[in-house]
Design a protein around this nucleic acid. Structure first.
Length: 565
RNA sequence: GGACCUGUGGCUUAGCUCGGAUAUAGCGCUGGCCUUCUAAGUCAGAUGUCUCGGGUUCAAAUCCCGACAGGUCCGCCA
């Protein structure tokens, strides 16, 4: 596709040069039925003082004939190119058949990227608000990997915060009234909620917890041990939930490590020497005024009066460590972290690290009745969403495919239920606020994962019934539905690249939907198994290619593509 | 009060980086399509002051300024 675009652009440049201008016209997508690339002539018209429509005509007339295009003509003030369908079919199908699962992948960049995501406080199970992070993070990791990078994913475990100490206090001082749930994150969250409640009521409990924190920060390894043990258990529960969504981490980084190994101390020592930092009552702060942040936000504290470190300071130590080991460090963060991330980046830069701290942000998911809060228990847990999704998918499978084996039905239900959840989160721009609604989160039709999975299954079904096919002639694929589908397939590599460059996932979800829709139109218009001879071979090749690209798109979204639905 | 993000048919949403020809799709609504490779599909139709007001431009959903609404942050918490 890019090849054709560049070819068209260069033909236009040549034609325009003949008219005495060096302006490079930008190709854009014309409306339906007007060809494949359009070059507007308004800018050129101004330069040459001629009317755009008249100019388009003379540009079109002086374009050299090229086998890649079946037409290059003026349409009003535009010069429109139509790609030769046979040429497009040949180039596109050839590429997919050669690369198969790798089609769409970019050349290796040689870059090592550390992608930090999820990093949820281990004080209870993941809820659907927090779930936006791992789903975006994992999808972005898959996109960046297909963009040719060597990607490592990491979960930063906050085992030093008040929330974790509160949880530990609860576990050590309270007794669960009934039978605790089996899954460790669900078992432990009660202690956190109950301890938070008691702490708010009884100042003596608050004192005890504060005392634990203070001892902990003086590098008390016994307390560290106790807190970490509980974090570890909650973490096991979280990773089990994410495992079901096919989300895994290459590594875990523990916040306390950076305290105990002295790296936070050394960071503080170096920060203290900077002109940008100052002290107030013994507390060190970064003056952000010269970094364009004014007003009440300008003093950003790095330590308390007693010299102990704060969260963002430890985060600087962590990011310096990441940047020293990788070419790029990217964080997936909730929008509440915007200022903190900016300051961490300022800090690492001041300490001589020129690589930026890159981040992408998402807005929160709320419930129709308001915000989600683990402490207050006003949440929908990710585990419940997955259970419900898979159960509803199972009902559909039972209804539609009663003849399938139990094993197949179970597999399809799992793929559809979890796929629908991932797709629903990723399909919208990350910066948009989301209100969680069951019927949207578990949508199985229209703009959804099952829609794409269904098209993939249709393709698989055709190929299952076809005998082997050998040579095919792409030039036979000239039906408008075939050409449109091939055009869609040809776009995949640039969609992947665009997502990687802009660190956005939703264009890929929308692309997968479009491709599936194009396949459905082809399916409607062009019988495959019922036609004879050469055309059948060519269409089987197109079905094969479509299946690979739907598979690759779904795989990049972390969604399973079953052979049957 | 200051800073950042978001505002597109009844609902959800793409397009905004890089201004161009009829503003994208889904849900819902109206009416069609299963002796034809899986109807979780498909076709047709209705539904839009692109939050509002200015400005720049031959041309603004898109760029600039100002309002308004929702979210987030502004703690020696995380």
């Amino acid at each position: 596709m890019e090849h054709f675009r560049e070819r068209a652009a260069s033909l236009v440049v040549d034609a325009v040069a003949g008219m005495g201008s060096k302006t490079a016209l930008q190709a854009e997508k014309p409306p339906e039925g007007m060809g494949d690339f359009a070059f507007p002539c308004f800018g050129l018209a101004k330069e040459l003082k001629r009317s755009p429509a008249e100019l388009a005509k003379s540009v079109a007339a002086s374009i050299a004939p090229d086998p890649a295009f079946s037409a290059a003509e003026a349409k009003g003030p535009y010069v429109n190119f139509r790609i030769h369908p046979a040429e497009l079919a040949k180039a596109t199908l050839g590429a997919v058949m050669g690369l198969r699962e790798e089609y769409g992948n970019a050349e290796p960049t040689g870059k090592r990227i550390l992608l930090e995501h999820t990093s949820a406080n281990p004080n209870g199970p993941l809820h659907v608000g927090r779930a936006r992070n791992p789903i975006i993070g994992d999808t972005l990791a898959r996109i960046l990997a297909r963009c040719g990078n060597d990607v490592t994913t990491e979960f930063y475990v906050d085992d030093m915060g008040k929330q974790q100490v509160t949880l530990t206090w609860g576990v050590e001082n309270l007794k669960h009234p009934g039978e605790a749930p089996k899954k460790p994150d669900h078992a432990l969250v009660w202690y956190y909620q109950e301890a938070s409640r008691l702490m708010a009521e009884d100042p003596r409990i608050l004192e005890q917890i504060d005392a634990m924190i203070s001892t902990y920060e003086k590098k008390d390894s016994a307390i560290a041990e106790r807190v970490r043990k509980n974090c570890q258990r909650v973490l096991e529960g979280m990773t089990a939930s994410l495992y079901r969504l096919d989300i895994h981490f290459n590594s875990f980084a523990w916040e306390s490590k950076y305290i105990f190994d002295g790296s936070v101390d050394s960071v503080l020592e170096r920060l203290r020497k900077l002109d940008s930092t100052a002290e107030e009552d013994g507390a060190l702060y970064l003056d952000l005024e010269r970094h364009g942040i004014t007003g009440q936000e300008r003093k950003f504290y790095l330590t308390r009066s007693d010299g102990s470190s704060l969260y963002s300071t430890r985060d600087m130590a962590y990011h310096l460590d990441k940047l020293s080991r990788y070419d790029r460090a990217i964080d997936v963060l909730g929008e509440d972290h915007r200022l903190k991330a900016k300051v961490v980046g300022i800090g690492t830069k001041l300490l001589g690290q020129d690589k930026p701290v890159e981040a992408m942000f998402y807005s929160f998911v709320s419930l129709p009745e308001g915000k989600m809060s683990t402490r207050r228990g006003t949440v929908v847990y990710l585990d419940d969403l997955i259970e419900e999704g898979v159960a509803r998918a199972r009902e559909e499978v039972d209804k539609r495919r009663p003849e399938l084996s139990e094993e197949l039905k179970r597999g399809i239900a799992e793929a559809v239920g979890t796929g629908a959840i991932r797709y629903n989160i990723i399909r919208v721009q990350a910066e948009k606020q989301l209100v969680f609604k069951w019927e949207e989160a578990l949508n199985f039709e229209g703009n959804s994962a099952p829609f794409v999975q269904y098209s993939h299954a249709r393709a698989s079904s055709i190929l299952r019934k076809a005998t082997e096919f050998g040579e095919y002639d792409p030039a036979l694929l000239v039906h408008p539905s075939e050409t449109a589908l091939i055009m869609g397939i040809a776009r995949f590599p640039s969609v992947i690249r665009e997502c990687g460059d802009s660190m956005q996932c939703h264009p890929l979800a929308l692309y997968a939907l479009e491709l599936a829709s194009l396949f459905n139109q082809f399916y409607r218009d062009c019988p495959v198994l019922a036609v004879e001879g050469e055309l059948r071979n060519a269409r089987l090749a197109l079905v094969t290619a479509s299946k690979f690209v739907m598979l690759n798109a779904l795989d990049t979204l972390g969604i399973v593509a079953p052979e049957e639905l």
